[in-house]
Simulated scan of single mutants.
Amino acid sequence: MHKDFLWGSATASYQCEGAWNEDGRVESMWDRYLHEHHLENGDVASDFYHQYEEDIKLMKAGGQNAYRFSLSWPRIISDREGTINPLGIDFYNRVIDCCIENGITPFVTIYHWDLPQYWQETGGWLDHNVCAAYDHYAKVCFDHFGDRVTYWATFNEPKWCLVNGYLIGNYPPGEHDVQHTMNAAYNMMFASALAVRTFRQGNYQGKIGIVHSYTPVDGVDDTIQTQIAVRNADNYSNNWVLDTAALGEFPINLVTRLSQDYDIGLMKPEELKIIKDNTVDFLGLNYYARSLVKPYTHGETQLQFNNTGKPGSTKIVLKDWFEQVMDPKSEFTEWDTEIYPRGLYDGLKKAYAKYDLPIYVTENGVGGA
């Protein structure tokens, strides 16, 4: 393997660590949500908190030289006042040191969805104060781990967690509100820019980027109506994250369209300048499938995803924007995920041509059970 080629695995703190109430870790919004709804939870998960040394040694034995993992905000910061939990810091110091001892480059995500419950109680990502709190949390991470970490990602998949949390309603906080989705999206992208600014002002080593749930968009034909639908779908799926993080601005045609029906007053000029001046060093792209779309025809907005393993139950329609269709020539998993490896090739070329930044394939595969 070439020494500059990073090949490894990825995890998220809540999905792998367990130890949900050990060593000073406080409750996350996922803990509260899954416990209240009596759903499968991450109380133990794969017990990475206690088994990390074995797991990392197995990565090395398997020929991996990189590990993308996220830090748990509730494990590091104990309250809204920003109190640091030293046991949380100690844990991640041990994980990072173990990676380095095994020749594995740590690729660290600051936020992978597990907002502390103490912030969710004030409104979560609808509370603009969370932006400054996130910036403080990011600086704590830079200060304690930045001497050994050279790859940082501010957020993992803003679109996926926010659309599911505030629009579709199957993630916490379980809402169905377009205005709230917009406000949360603005706050998260502003928070990302704040962390980039803090990283640069602190002269920490390495690079800082963002990781996006990348869905390259294709149209069913080359008509102008379809190309408009493609642009609408690209704005919904990709551009509000990638354009904002990499180019420093929200897509103006998206903002213009949303402003016709919703309030965009949260977007302050002084904050938009911070976003403009603090773009990322690289993009991490998570690819599982493309989106094939046609012009909108009729009906209300539907964002129905197959969570049952029964093929054909996915329905994605954004009223007056676009409709997603399933290519009759393609093969799909039982979860309605198109098996389309060419989408990764086409998508990488498209993203590189547009943003001219280093790109890491941070997740990819076949979306099965």
Rank of each mutant, 00 (worst) to 15 (best):
8 G>S: 02
10 A>D: 08
17 E>K: 00
23 D>M: 11
30 W>C: 05
37 H>T: 14
39 L>T: 11
42 G>Y: 01
42 G>D: 08
44 V>P: 06
53 E>G: 09
59 M>E: 07
62 G>P: 04
63 G>L: 04
64 Q>L: 14
65 N>W: 02
69 F>Y: 02
75 R>Q: 04
77 I>F: 06
84 I>C: 13
84 I>R: 01
87 L>A: 15
90 D>H: 07
93 N>P: 05
97 D>Q: 03
100 I>N: 01
110 I>K: 02
116 P>I: 07
117 Q>A: 14
123 G>P: 04
129 N>I: 05
131 C>P: 03
132 A>P: 04
133 A>P: 02
135 D>R: 00
136 H>F: 11
136 H>A: 09
137 Y>F: 14
142 F>W: 01
142 F>V: 04
142 F>Y: 03
145 F>K: 00
148 R>W: 04
148 R>N: 07
151 Y>A: 06
165 G>R: 03
170 N>H: 10
170 N>V: 15
178 V>A: 09
179 Q>N: 06
180 H>Y: 12
183 N>M: 12
184 A>C: 14
196 V>T: 04
196 V>Y: 06
200 R>Y: 07
207 K>V: 10
210 I>V: 13
218 D>G: 04
220 V>G: 07
222 D>A: 15
228 I>A: 15
229 A>T: 02
239 N>M: 12
256 T>K: 11
259 S>E: 10
260 Q>D: 12
266 L>R: 03
267 M>S: 06
268 K>A: 14
275 I>F: 07
277 D>P: 02
284 G>H: 00
303 L>I: 12
304 Q>L: 15
304 Q>V: 15
306 N>I: 12
306 N>R: 00
308 T>C: 01
310 K>L: 09
329 K>D: 14
339 I>K: 01
343 G>P: 12
345 Y>M: 12
346 D>L: 12
353 A>G: 06
354 K>F: 13
367 G>H: 00
